[in-house]
């Protein structure tokens, strides 16, 4: 079922790439339409899965990735509609395609440990997935900032110069994305800690819950992520780390997020494997 959104996202990549190269407004509108269709199809898929397993499917890595992709697509569409800026699509939509291949080829059954039947779990996961989606946006904004910066600084005004938004706009959007992401990351982590403590009191034998500590790589890296983004915000405000420094920091932050999201979730963690 996850193939239809994957195909539509892939089609959107192609149209966004053509729009980026040719810069024709009509192609841009087509790109947005195709992406919107992808999001609608994806919404339908997630809706069907929810009906099937009777909870929002993000208890295993594969379904969580699918929800993450959906949120990133929505966040990007929001950014595009509010700024009327389509040049970022060619950088962000490929992430959707890359990640959507995971649920498409490895759907996994969203069996849920009864211990997760709590609204806190829902808040915890949704907040974190949304935080990760905005960090992905921030990273891509940072990457494009660096590309644009390089061309202007080196006085080689070329391919990206004419196509990308101004440095100011990219920096301002990056700053906003990091701030929103940080807020949701904080909420997600705090809710996770509180809820895990409560759940452990109720089911002291649950091996997952017993493994919840800073020594668990997944939790450690989540805290590290929080530290990186906190520093990024602090540095922007007080040390004047705007522009290229902020851009690199948000890129580094997202690499850590991805690392935690995929390899760590699949292979290393002992605490977050409720299967």
């Amino acid at each position: 079922m996850n193939f239809l959104p994957l195909a539509l996202y892939a089609a959107a990549v192609v149209v966004y790439a053509i729009h980026f190269a040719k810069r024709q407004p009509s192609i841009g509108r087509t790109a947005t339409t195709v992406l919107l269709l992808g999001v609608l199809a994806h919404t339908f898929v997630i809706g069907m899965q929810t009906m099937e397993v009777r909870h929002v499917p993000f208890s295993n890595t594969s379904t969580a990735v699918s929800s993450f992709v959906w949120m990133l697509a929505l966040s990007y569409l929001y950014l595009e509609v509010t700024t009327d800026e389509r040049a970022m699509g060619v950088f962000i939509v490929p992430i959707l395609v890359g990640l959507q291949t995971i649920p498409a080829f490895n759907p996994g059954v969203d069996y849920r440990d009864p211990v997760l039947d709590s609204p806190w779990f829902w808040v915890h996961v949704t907040s974190l997935l949304f935080a990760y989606a905005t960090f992905a946006l921030a990273a891509m904004l940072g990457l494009t900032y660096v590309l644009q910066f390089k061309e202007i600084k080196k006085k080689h005004l070329g391919y990206f110069y004419t196509r990308l938004p101004s440095l100011h706009v990219l920096d301002a959007m990056n700053s906003r994305a990091v701030a929103v992401g940080w807020l949701f990351l904080t909420v997600g982590v705090v809710v996770g800690v509180v809820w895990a403590a409560q759940a452990l009191a109720l089911t002291p034998d649950n091996s997952n819950l017993r493994a919840m500590s800073l020594q668990d790589p997944k939790i450690f890296i989540a805290v590290l992520t929080w530290a990186v983004y906190s520093f990024a915000m602090f540095a922007r405000k007080t040390l004047g780390w705007t522009g290229r420094r902020a851009a690199w920091l948000s890129a580094v932050g997202f690499v850590i997020v991805l690392l935690n999201f995929l390899p760590v979730s699949y292979f290393v963690t002992t605490s977050h494997t409720f299967q």
Binding site: Q24, I152, L157, Y161, P165, S166, L167, H168
Partner: peptide
């Protein structure tokens, strides 16, 4: 104008400077 790049890019020094300023500062 819409289908070719015939009118693109500033062709005087002062316009080129303003175009650059807009790519740095936006508005």
């Amino acid at each position: 104008r819409t289908e070719t790049g015939l009118g693109e890019g500033a062709v005087s020094v002062s316009f080129a400077a303003v175009a650059l300023a807009r790519k740095i500062f936006g508005q």
